[in-house]
Design a protein around this nucleic acid. Structure first.
Lengths: 355, 355
DNA sequence: CTAAGCACACTATACTATAGAGTGCTAAAA
DNA sequence: TTTTAGCACTCTATAGTATAGTGTGCTTAG
């Protein structure tokens, strides 16, 4: 059977009607659309064929049709008209992004919130970290008696600091010696290389301020370890409850719980070699729980070899045109923002995921 | 009418039965309790009187009774038996808290998650910041050509840093001059005092590295401004969906939305002069939306003049004994942890609330 | 090839009947 | 005087039934 132009028109109308009403679409509703010049009977025939072709589904014999996964797929790939952002939308996205953000984790949270707001769906944002960052340089600042500030510069342009209070009286000169030792022995190492043996070696040559070394080493290891993991944020989970398909609390809960765990962890892998905006329709989904849930994701550039990703999760019925348009625009704006010189530098940031 | 011992026993039984079943409690169920030596008819009489006294309510004539707000209040204040944490529970709480946490905001998030986990309810945690923190000292580190690290020490023991990249070639000596100027003119000031006039003044005396000044000043203002606001985190909102009273999506959504906004902002005020654990039962609540929702809050000490607060939100029917016990234990453990020297120092942290 | 008409299928809704739980009251027992 | 047993009554939740409405598929006519 051939997919004629008319069939495409019908399918597109059905998808769009279904997106806006969340109810199965009947032949009459399609026939009554402004520029549909055929009667409901004709539409009915087309719908019957679209059903056998697998693009439509029927919840039960005497109900209207709803798009199948294949139907959505076709819609997204071929039929969907590009949604044009209004000036207002574009403007408010840009404005929101322009706010100053100091740390990557803070920023990811903010971005997730913004995306969620813009799409009225739960959103996630991920910033992949550059693998294998090491310490470029240590710096110790004397900040009062018994108080030392440790500043650690990493190879990926991040800087972290820690205030250390010790009852040891360390003077400028001891700190100078210590930082020289640190820079000589502890830079360029992977977190696994911070062994007890190294600790001992460094301590023995560290001079009077040796008692600072264990604290410094523990902190550094911790920081490097966190560098390895991606930075993620989820926002607006509650918005899912606004969608009619999640009126069932159990279902909403299942999906949202999954959102916290699996999806987040899997998405980077899914997007590995993808570029642009990707739409994952329902059953194409990795996780079984997200079977009738779609995911739309886009990548953006952070610079310094870091990759960002924003995405939203919603019912298979979501308004793909709007969502992809907004997401792409977001990604574009973010990439642009990061390309600007004043924003290139993002000091230290880290998060932990558990629950 | 007098509140006899027996009435109290009955009330207590009813509250506890209702807590565990979430169903109105009938006289028969109470009479059948192991150590209840009266018949259902007697209990019925008592229940009738407890109802006229305002401690119980009847959803409708031929249903069992449920505790009124006054009933819960009495239960929480007088009747509730202290719940004893098992070794296991105490242990797992302690273990969870011991993980290293670097920043206040990170820690608040973690604490909220832990509390939520321990109570199976949405949890919030707040760290009030010390008002009026100012800059104690600036430090500039040369970190490669065109790259400077700014380290700002605040009076409240926090330290923040920022990597600045500028095409200006600044040498050690220029930075030394600049940092001297900064320390002379920009320390001890409130964020409002960072005026354009100040900027101009500082720039004119800053020497060759003057172009760094605007960036530094903007960053500092930002940091100080963030110091003023409290640090909050919400976690486990989804857990509310597990409670039978929130099977209605709309209701759950309303409550959770409120949780994000009002409550968070109001709680510090409510707890102003309170100490220990406070239980706010349903209608005693500030917000109208939280009418049949209870809140349990406890304070803890962070040190450095900072105050922490953890709390959970749940149905009025929640298990107050368990929740208060766990919350108090949490608060105690946290206070202890912060009292330890290694944890006294908490470098910079900040968050933003919007949605 | 398109449209009109009609019988049939199925769901959602309102309505009804019934079982079950719980109460309040009265009267008897302790 | 307090407690308990018994019983009529109330109210809800549940299942079962009838009905209106929507939509389909097929047949037939334009």
């Amino acid at each position: 059977m051939e997919l004629t132009e008319r069939k495409k028109r019908v399918l597109r109308s059905i998808v769009e009607l279904y997106i806006s009403t969340a109810e199965p679409v009947g032949s009459k509703a399609v026939a009554e659309l402004p520029d549909m010049k055929y009667s409901s009977a004709t539409i009915r025939n087309e719908m019957a064929e679209l059903t056998t072709m697998g693009y439509l589904e029927q919840p039960h014999t005497s109900a209207g049709r709803i798009p199948s996964a294949a139907g959505y797929r076709l819609y997204v790939d071929e039929l969907m008209a590009g949604y044009r952002l209004s000036m207002d939308e574009a403007h408010s996205i840009n404005e929101a992004i322009e706010a100053k953000m100091q740390r990557v984790d803070e920023m990811m949270e903010r971005v997730a919130k913004l995306v969620s707001q813009a799409t009225d769906l739960p959103a996630i944002s991920v910033a992949s970290r550059q693998r294998g960052a090491t310490v470029k340089r240590f710096e110790l600042i004397l900040a009062g008696q018994g108080t030392v500030i440790l500043v650690v510069m990493l190879t990926n342009e991040e800087v972290v600091n820690k205030l250390i209070k010790l009852p040891v009286l360390a003077g400028e000169s001891e700190l100078k010696i210590l930082s020289a030792v640190l820079n000589a022995t502890m830079t360029g190492l992977a977190p696994e290389e911070f062994t007890p043996e190294l600790l001992e070696r460094v301590m023995s040559s560290a001079g009077e301020a040796a008692s600072l070394v264990p604290v410094i080493m523990e902190f550094t290891t911790e920081v490097l370890r966190k560098q390895g993991s991606a930075n993620m944020a989820v926002a607006g989970q509650l918005r899912l409850l606004g969608q009619p398909e999640y009126r069932d609390v159990d279902k909403a809960q299942r999906v949202l719980t999954t959102l916290d765990e699996e999806t987040l962890a899997n998405l980077p892998a899914v997007m590995q070699n993808q570029s642009g905006t990707k739409v994952i329709v329902g059953p194409e989904n990795v996780s079984q729980e997200l079977k009738d849930t779609s995911v739309v994701i886009t990548k953006f550039d952070i610079g310094d070899g870091m990759q960002g990703m924003i995405g939203v999760v919603g019912p298979t019925r979501m308004d793909y045109a709007k969502v992809t348009a907004r997401l792409s625009y977001f990604a574009e704006s973010l990439s642009k923002m990061f390309a600007k010189p004043e924003h290139t530098e993002l000091p230290a940031g880290k998060t932990e995921e558990e629950e």
